[in-house]
Design a protein around this nucleic acid. Structure first.
Lengths: 298, 298
DNA sequence: TTCCTCATATAGCTTTTCTATATCGGCAAA
DNA sequence: TTTGCCGATATAGAAAAGCTATATGAGGAA
């Protein structure tokens, strides 16, 4: 499209407007400039194209035969540009863009989105699955959910749920356990990205000695949970990861001892401006769903 | 399309180029400006739209979800504008735009255009039927054929054929005529726009007395000729108007007396520049056809 | 002949666009 | 940890584009 470098876009627009509206005055009205400005632009643009698109008559501008297809194509082009601008300027009241960790999306959020649709049919979600802390001022994300200490500058942070970890394993594996100390004797499956270790839970359980032996390590928490479900070992899991599988009976949390990691779930939104209703609606719904998940454990 | 007034077209183009090419540098290369210029334009245009279309990452600009449809529409728009510009800038070697009087077109030229197509299949004609003397410098007409004295300033004029007039009537009507003086006793059909009167012919025929009585007057020479063909009167016609009907035997030119009107057929072209081959080809062909028409009369 | 409409030309001001340069942040390699 | 590179951004000021205001010209109608 380098050929567009040889002609001024404002001039092409002037040509199109005159071609469609029939006179310099009508075009000037639409473009919001004076008749003289349109006249200059038309003359200059014709010069840049090396082609006369109009014949001047006392009754106004008449399109030349060569001008007809050119002006038709210009019209289609500008109609499309106008649609693009309208699209960009439209307030997407009905689209909510959220950012959550992939594992939270896969293991907790996506399976309950049907309930969000029931509650808010007028809101369409866009889900950006990433663990990065997004720059909300420089992206189109409305709200993020993140796990961590919550000390993130430049954004508004709102606590949602304290993260707790606890061992989970298959029911068959759990059936062989007589006391909490038996858990650390099981082989373990490990999530390499976890920000905590078995020590956190063992302290809460009042256990000393070595942690479980590592059988498998995964770089994806969701895959790690699948391994635990498959009976390949015990995993130190957390509420949103394991809640659904616990409810289904595919996993068991033996003895129910939980330890707080010191991290929490937080809503992260842009500072300053008043939150749109769709964001408030979403947060309220998430709170309810988190409360229901928390209720599984006590 | 007034919404385009609120955003700079150059900025939209910068957005589109970055969206399509993936970086400010690549866009700058295509637009022929510096990276700083593109950066400024993108930032300003996003501000004017009130929408971020890109997320800035260390690896370059990433299109936001909202940006994807907007940039797609911008791309379509600019592709079409580019096509329009290419169309306008393309040298139409194969299109010849001619301007002739409507009656010349209808009665002489159009019926023989098949022969022009045979001779020059590579040339497409555009025919502008008007009697006005066109401003060749301010229109896209390559060559005009006009009837008159030929004294037209500011254009190149080239004589083609002297205009002669002569009475024509239906064969039945002609069968009753014994001598030229009988012609002026017939009722006449008159072309209101004709630039000559019966006096011109009567002088050439050596006849005195009153001209034929007027039966019908037409504001279109072609309709007038049709009336003569229909036997409604005698018409003072000219070569290009009546030639074809004479050859067909639908009209007769009794006694073959012709008078020169003092007007002529002329090629009219723009002054100055060397004529393209297509114009020279067309004129050569017209000369041959005119010579053939002239041969009908002796 | 006069008046109106439409396009065009011109001078000069305003706005946009651009260049040149410096800076910043992130990432990879030493 | 330091350094260098890459890509984006900010800034000042120059250049170009765009615009207004005004005058002019041509054609047509009253």
């Amino acid at each position: 499209m380098r050929n567009l470098n040889s002609v001024h876009l404002n001039g092409l627009r002037a040509l199109e407007a005159v071609g469609r509206l029939g006179s310099l005055q009508a075009a000037a009205d639409e473009l919001g400039v004076s008749v003289g400005a349109v006249s200059q632009q038309v003359i200059k643009a014709e010069g840049q194209l090396g082609r006369l698109l109009f014949e001047r008559t006392p009754k106004g501008m008449l399109i030349t035969e060569a001008g007809t297809p050119v002006l038709a194509a210009l019209n289609e082009g500008f109609v499309r540009l106008s649609e693009a601008v309208a699209m960009a300027q439209r307030k997407d009241e009905c689209i909510l863009t959220i950012s959550v960790a992939p594992v939270l999306a896969a293991r907790w959020l996506v399976c309950r989105l049907d309930r969000f649709m029931e509650r808010h049919p007028e809101i369409n979600l866009r889900l950006d699955a990433t663990t990065k802390l997004v720059n909300l001022a420089a992206s189109d994300i409305d709200v993020a959910i993140r796990v961590g200490k919550g000390h993130w500058p430049g954004v508004k942070v709102e606590h949602l749920l304290e993260q707790e970890v606890f061992p989970v394993c298959s029911p068959d594996m759990a059936a062989k356990l007589r006391e909490p100390a038996d858990i650390v004797k099981l082989p373990a499956v490990i999530d390499a990205h976890a920000m905590f270790t078995w020590d956190v839970w063992m302290r809460a359980a009042g256990l000393s000695g070595p942690p479980p032996t590592v059988r498998h390590v995964f770089n994806d928490a969701s895959l790690c949970l699948d391994a635990a479900i498959a009976g390949q070992g015990v995993m130190l899991a957390w509420q949103t990861l394991a809640g659904f599988s616990l409810q289904e009976g595919r996993l068991v949390a033996p003895f129910g001892i939980r330890a707080s990691t010191g991290d929490g779930y937080y809503f992260v939104t842009a500072e300053g401006s008043r939150e749109p209703k769709k964001v408030r609606d979403f947060k309220a719904w998430i709170r309810e769903e988190m409360a229901e998940t928390a209720a599984i454990f006590g």
